[in-house]
């Protein structure tokens, strides 16, 4: 067992001490996590993005076009100053414009068109019938321009039940995920640290 395993185990136990109540040991571990995460992100961003994508092309390869993104990046950082914060709107506008331009057609294709196509199914088996009824009834539920009463109301009510089934399955999966995290930590504590399990 190396020292890093013991440190990780102590920090895990420190975090789990919150299950009893909030305490300074938990707070210390939480602050270490935050500090390490931010430090790691900064180092990875500098070494894996800023150096190969900006410093090397601009200062080593002499590609002057990279001055533009460099200036836009600096303009973004001016957001922290009171006097020049308005300049940050230029790169921000560019990001929003380009982002929306990229995202809207992609989203339309991947979510709207592909999903609509996947809902146009032959009524040849139970699964297809359930999918079509569920999609239509949930859409009816989210149609608020007409009062939910009569046949319309019944369909909307069916939509609520389908939504509840979705929420239930999502909650079930969430529970599964959280238990998995606990299992992972206990495997670490009992296996890697204490060597009780293999």
């Amino acid at each position: 067992m190396d020292i890093s395993t013991t440190i990780a185990a102590i920090l895990t136990l420190a975090i789990y001490s919150f299950l009893y109540r909030d305490n300074p040991v938990y707070k210390t571990a939480e602050h270490i996590l935050l500090g390490v995460s931010v430090g790691y992100f900064v180092v990875i961003t500098i070494s894996n993005t800023i150096i190969p994508k900006l410093i090397i092309p601009l200062f080593v390869d002499g590609e002057l076009i990279y001055i533009i993104p460099a200036l836009l990046g600096i303009a973004m950082l001016l957001r922290v100053t009171k006097q020049f914060s308005h300049i940050s709107r230029i790169p921000l506008a560019l990001i929003i414009g380009v982002g929306a331009g990229i995202a809207i057609p992609a989203y339309m294709q991947a979510h709207l068109i592909a999903q609509m196509k996947a809902t146009m199914l032959p009524l040849s088996n139970i699964s297809n019938i359930v999918i079509i009824i569920a999609v239509l009834s949930v859409l009816v539920y989210f149609f608020f321009s007409r009062k939910h009463e009569g046949a319309f109301g019944v369909t909307a009510k069916a939509g609520i039940y389908f939504l509840m089934i979705f929420f239930g399955s999502t909650f079930g999966y969430t529970v599964m995920a959280r238990i998995s995290l606990l299992i992972g930590r206990i495997q670490f504590l009992l296996g890697d640290w204490l060597g009780i399990i293999r």
Binding site: A103, A110, T170
Partner: peptide
């Protein structure tokens, strides 16, 4: 959204359980 819809690449999601219900519609389609 970007690799499959635009370039037709085959995507294999290996995800956390929390995200499963979000990904099922893409499986069905």
């Amino acid at each position: 959204n970007y690799a499959q819809a635009r370039y037709g690449v085959n995507i294999i999601p290996a995800i956390t359980a929390v995200m499963a219900t979000t990904m099922y519609p893409f499986l069905q389609s």
